[in-house]
Structures are given as C-alpha cells and as structure tokens.
Amino acid sequence: MFREAKQNRIFQDVVHQIQEAILQGKLKAGSKLPPERELKEMFKTSRGTLREALRVLEQKGLITIKTGVNGGGIVNALTTQQVSESLDLLIRYQRISLRDLAEFREGVEGIVASLAVERAKNEDIKHLKRLLADAKTHLEEGASGWDEFIGVDNQLHMALAHIAGNPIYESVLQTIYDNIHRYFDQFLPREEEILRENYQDLCEIVKAVEKGQAAQAHLLVQNHVYRFNRLMEENQEQKKN
C-alpha cells in the first residue's frame, strides 16, 4: 500500500500517501494504521518524522491517534465536519468580510430555498409555521425579545437547509449560523423595525414554500439576505467614520 517516501520531501510524502489511501478507500473508517515500526520501515523514515506526519493527519480529521497498548492511528469516517471546522475558524476570526458572507448566502440560500420547496412535506411546513409563531411571540416582546427572535430566525433558515436534504449545504450553513451572531452583534442595529421587516420576510418565504413557488422562495431569500447585509455594511461604515 505504501512505498518509500521521497527523500527530498519525506514529511509531505508520508502525509500524502496515507491521506490518499484513506480518500481512495484503501484504508476504511475504523481500521487501524499499521504499527509505527512497520510504517517506519515502509516509508524509510525516522520516528520523529512519522509521528509529525500522523499529527498532521489527525489535525485534518482523517485519523485519531490513540495511546496505550492497543493504541495507534485509527481512520476516521469522512464527513463534512472537517470543512465546517475550517470555515468556523475563518468566521470566528473574521477573516471573511460581510460582503463575502452576503455573496455566499445570497447564492447558496436562494438555491436551498428552492430545493426546500421541491422537497418539503406536510410536516416540514407545519414545523416552519411553528417557528413563525415563535418568531411572532418574540417580536411582540419588542427590544427585549431581540436575541430570541434572531435565534428563531436562524432556526428557520436551518430548517430550510434541512428540508432541502443536501448535507453539504446544511453543514456549511450550520457553521455560518453558529457564528453569524458575531456580525449581527457588531453591525446590525437593534431596532424593532428591523425585527418587523425580518418577520414579514420570513412569513413570505414560508408562504412561498407552502404554495410550492420555488422561484419566488429563491428570490425572497436572496432579497432578505441582501437587505439585511446592506444594513450591516452601512452600520459598519458609520462606525469607521
């Protein structure tokens, strides 16, 4: 399965070979890597270089290193979590601008909304309406219900992603909504009028899903994301000045 590592870049080649064996299915989820002694012999490398390569693979989420008598490298099941964790770091440290985030959300969430229309079942519609009822309750609380309202708003967006049935969209959007409050807290004015506009948008989106209007749902979500991002960008500019 493995060959002697290229001597001019031993470390990178060890990582590459093991990674490719996992991605190509030669090493299955749950299986153990060969013992350290055997890997050293296969790659013709030192213990230090091998262990560093294994640590990199663990950081990538491809393996888990266990210690003890029955320890060693265990191959992880590949999921979208690895991508989500990288995106999580970018958002948390604000390496993604409001404009970057808006462009992504306008495109992806529009598609997600149209897919949700095509795939929604009666129980899904009922769930969306329950979320609308929760949003209305918090809207009527005024400014004191701001955080709870935004939380329900996020839940409704994620409900659409779940209904759409694509785990990649759902996983990436979950990461965004787990962290988007960092932008809202800084740049979205806490005004009751914003909540009312937001609630009206959500009502129209759910209505389009219920009526099977995929193109309308797509457009409504895009406009919703665009408008609220513009509010945050304007507030961001005011703070700079």
Rank of each mutant, 00 (worst) to 15 (best):
L139D: 02
V221R: 04
S86I: 15
I22R: 01
T79V: 06
S114N: 03
E36R: 09
Q222W: 10
G68N: 05
R119S: 12
E141R: 07
K129W: 05
F104H: 09
N122G: 15
K44R: 11
A53P: 01
R190V: 15
A102W: 05
L188H: 04
P189E: 06
V14F: 00
S46W: 06
A102M: 09
I111E: 12
Q7R: 12
Q19K: 13
R47A: 15
Q222C: 10
V69M: 10
E106W: 02
R230I: 15
Q216R: 12
K126V: 13
A113K: 04
V69Y: 12
V83I: 14
H181E: 13
A161K: 00
D124Q: 00
Q200R: 14
R47W: 07
G25W: 06
V209T: 04
E197D: 14
S46Y: 08
Q222R: 14
L23C: 05
E103I: 11
V112P: 04
L220N: 09
K211Q: 15
I168Y: 08
E140Q: 13
R9T: 12
V112R: 00
L128K: 00
L131V: 07
R190C: 11
K6N: 13
L90D: 11
N223L: 12
Y183S: 06
P167C: 05
E118I: 09
A143L: 10
V117F: 03
L219V: 10
A29R: 02
V209F: 01
F104A: 07
E197W: 08
Q236S: 14
L132P: 03
L33Q: 00
A120S: 13
N76K: 06
V172T: 12
Y177M: 03
R190G: 13
N76I: 00
R3T: 15
R99Q: 14
A102C: 13
N179K: 04
R196C: 04
D100F: 02
L98H: 03
V225T: 10
V56A: 09
V75Q: 02
T175L: 01
D201K: 09
A208P: 05
H157T: 03
D134Q: 14
K207F: 14
E170Q: 14
Q238S: 14
I65V: 06
V206T: 07
A21K: 02
T64F: 01
E123F: 09
V108C: 08
E204G: 13
H138M: 04
N76S: 08
Q236L: 12
